[in-house]
């Protein structure tokens, strides 16, 4: 499960672009958001690459 901390997210799109399952997108406020959580395979790549420590992936 992907949890986003909106207070830390700066909307850089890195997590959106590199998610292998296209789980994430930006919302109207340019914050990362989970658009289809059922596709998430908990690989953790978004958490590793988020430059702002805004993502936690719970296995």
């Amino acid at each position: 499960m992907v949890v986003i901390n909106e207070k830390l997210c700066k909307g850089c799109l890195i997590c959106v672009e590199f998610c292998p399952k296209n789980v994430l997108s930006l919302n109207k406020l340019q914050k990362a958001t989970v658009k289809n959580s059922e596709n998430c395979i908990s690989c953790g790549l978004c958490e590793l690459r988020c430059p702002d420590y805004a993502i936690t992936v719970r296995k």
Binding site: K10, G11, C12, L13, L48, R49, C50, P51, D52, Y53
Partner: peptide
């Protein structure tokens, strides 16, 4: 800045 590699 947004997307800066430093944080990574």
């Amino acid at each position: 800045c947004p997307g800066c590699g430093n944080g990574i």
